[in-house]
Design a protein around this nucleic acid. Structure first.
Lengths: 251, 251
DNA sequence: GGGGAGAGATGCCGC
DNA sequence: GCGGCATTTCTCCCC
């Protein structure tokens, strides 16, 4: 594929707001919230129809460089190289991708009306606890959920069997130090705004780090083992009932 | 491209540990840390040479679904459809991508020895303050930086003009509530471990949210406006001096 | 491998 | 738009 053909196809795809996938050898300069330079190497450049751009190397889940949506892209030619310039005036960011060699170029108008359905989030966990607070502690009664405006973003708000206000902070994975300080902030804010001197705090999570547990107990708070709903359910089911997931392990 | 050809090329690319780029119409099931389902639509599937996988829709910076590195992938055929199964036994995660239609398929052995050079991070900011603490407060003297083991992850550790120990917490962007609780945790930990009753805390950031500022002042801490080094420097330079973006400028 | 914290975090929701 | 916060966060560093 010649440089001219590539430039033409890129411009055409950009005009049509298609999604572009370009495998190429390139170097990258970025300037904006930070500044970066990446010397020549083979990468994949994706420009989506929302005019976001990302550059991927052959490893890692995250792009090595990217531009956010609503960026403006242009393609120029510079001595047998293609220069892809992107800028986002609003965010004061810009990027220059200098392309040495093109390995492949595809552009598509991706049609997609589906939206992902996700479960097992922290919100699902808070909902589960709100509907059945006794899984956290015997005698606990739920008062409200997602108290966002008044005292912060309290996950579940309860009253214990002795009538003491109790704040539950959910973590879907292992609770760390910041979860404890977060809980402490909610408890203190609530005590101050209500003018009461006794509010309990509970962290509900599958596990907790040792330091977090110590800080939790130092502050008189409590940890309760709670797992997010349906966590690994399908996986465990297939493991036990079907004798395990069978990929072609030779690949 | 026939299903058989596609399957063959995919298996071949997986064997060669190439990076695969597949544009297709597909549906996706994921089960692991959470569970998700995404109905049929046009997407881009990337399998990298580290055997990580990600699925991108036509918008957004983040993949709609993904598998981490060291997953195992296999391709099966099921009634005119291709079924790409991925699993990660270690993480107890798995994914099934059912492919209706293939728009394009490319695979490459991406060669890349370069690594990105990035500047303007929080670490650069802490270094700048360490080397010239008076930009935070008159009379401040730096003691150490990145005290990770003893008292927590203190960015910059100083003594003020009256000899009081002072912890500086840097944020490269706007400081929020969690920055204040973080600082508070460091201050309290240091007071306890040193057995002293007076330690100061300063947040150094370009800006701070109103609630964070209030909580900061309630706790007797202080805010100092500090911008990360070289923030937007090249951008502003090229905008003002050169009247536009000049990729070769200054390099 | 776990703990802790930054990230050019991104994305979501509420005000 | 900003604020606050979860994320299948990811990534890095250090113990």
């Amino acid at each position: 594929m010649s440089i001219e053909e590539c430039q033409s196809q890129l411009e055409d795809a950009l005009n049509k707001k298609q999604t572009i996938i370009l495998a190429c050898n390139c170097s990258i300069r970025y300037s904006g919230r930070a500044e970066s330079f990446l010397d020549y190497g083979d990468r994949i450049v994706i420009i989506k129809s929302d005019h976001s751009l990302q550059v991927h190397t052959s490893t890692g889940s995250t792009p090595v460089n990217y531009m956010k949506q609503d960026s403006v892209h242009s393609i120029e030619q510079d001595e047998k190289k293609l220069v892809l310039k992107s800028s986002n005036l609003l965010l004061k960011e810009k990027m220059t991708i200098t392309i040495n060699q093109i390995h492949s170029l595809n552009s598509h108008a991706l049609e997609d009306t589906a939206s992902i359905v996700l479960q097992g989030t922290e919100d699902d966990m808070a909902k589960m606890i709100y509907e059945n607070p006794e899984i956290v502690e015997t005698g606990l009664k739920a008062v409200s959920r997602e108290e966002q405006t008044k005292y912060g973003f309290i996950d579940v708000f309860c009253v214990d069997k002795e009538g003491t206000l109790t704040i539950i902070e959910c973590k879907r994975y292992k609770a760390e130090l910041n979860a404890v300080t977060q809980l402490r902030r909610y408890v203190e804010r609530l005590m101050k705004s209500k003018g009461i001197d006794k509010v309990r705090g509970i962290i509900a999570a599958p596990s907790i780090t040792p330091n977090a547990k110590k800080m939790l107990e130092d502050w008189g708070y409590k940890f309760a083992i709670v797992k997010p709903p349906k966590y690994l359910e399908e996986y465990d089911k297939s493991q036990t009932k079907l004798g395990g997931y069978q990929p072609n392990a030779g690949s």
